[in-house]
Design a binder for these strands. Structure first.
Lengths: 140, 140
DNA sequence: TTCCATGCAAACACTTTGCACCGTG
DNA sequence: CACGGTGCAAAGTGTTTGCATGGAA
């Protein structure tokens, strides 16, 4: 798996460095994480990585389509790896829970946007804010 | 209209100041604007408003439900007034065009999220990134 | 041996906060 | 005349960049 990544990186003229691999692995491990959190995760293995390296790599990895980011809060961008099929996220404002949802649930919606507005949505980047059942109950 | 707002503001223990009114009006005038752009708009009328006042007021106005914000780019939050019916936005990554869409187009999608995940989406905050017809053509 | 990648520190963009003064209600 | 609002400047966050050095291909 990492080897696939390594190959893909090299074939784009980039190089595979230890830092890059650590960061990639951290994205994979954490699921959804901010640059800062990724740095912390990486530091568990090796303290020899700088925050700016994290940023630079996330940028590169995103260009190559190996990771994606979304916005959890208004402040924090969070990165996740692009492993399986495309999916999008539901985020509960109450508990910050993240629910990953497969593409089936949006297909119809996407089709409608395309038909009505000639607009092709980027499903992988889609983040829907709202409230989950637990938090609605709690609020009552 | 501004009077309704003024009333609503006062009844929450807040006060109606000239700055607050100018900012509210600017949000209304500009449609979708960043704090900085709002300041610029306000300055057309009166230079006596500070950026931090803009921030503080947007916070208050959002609490009161008079304005909302969304995220156009990854960096800039943009505010718009809550005037008519609820709507959400499509944003083209290519040209940054913003398309406002009424709630009909999402109803079905929203219903599905609620049925399948017990999740109630916040339609007014929804922002869908993607690409518009023009930009897709250009890319080809 | 060539460039891409890295560390470090400084620069940046955006937002928040402390404090003294001002003005609405 | 009490208390919320404002301006100003300084301090935070989070992210980006310039430069010299290091290392993958």
């Amino acid at each position: 798996m990492s080897d696939d990544f390594a190959e893909r990186i090299r074939s784009s003229g980039k190089r595979m460095t230890p830092q890059r691999e650590l960061i990639l692995r951290a994205v994979d491990t954490l699921g959804h994480a901010t640059p800062e959190q990724l740095l912390a995760e990486v530091h568990k293995q090796s303290s020899a990585v700088n925050l700016s390296t994290v940023y630079r790599n996330l940028e590169v990895l995103e260009e190559l389509g190996l990771v994606r980011h979304m916005h959890l809060g208004d402040r924090a961008p969070t990165y996740h790896s692009v492993g399986g099929p495309e999916h999008f996220h539901l985020i509960c404002r109450g508990c910050e829970k993240v629910i990953s949802v497969g593409p089936e649930a949006v297909e119809q919606f996407a089709a409608r946007l395309q038909a009505d507005f000639d607009f092709v949505p980027d499903i992988g980047h889609l983040t829907v804010f709202g409230s989950c059942a637990d938090c609605r109950d709690a609020a009552t």
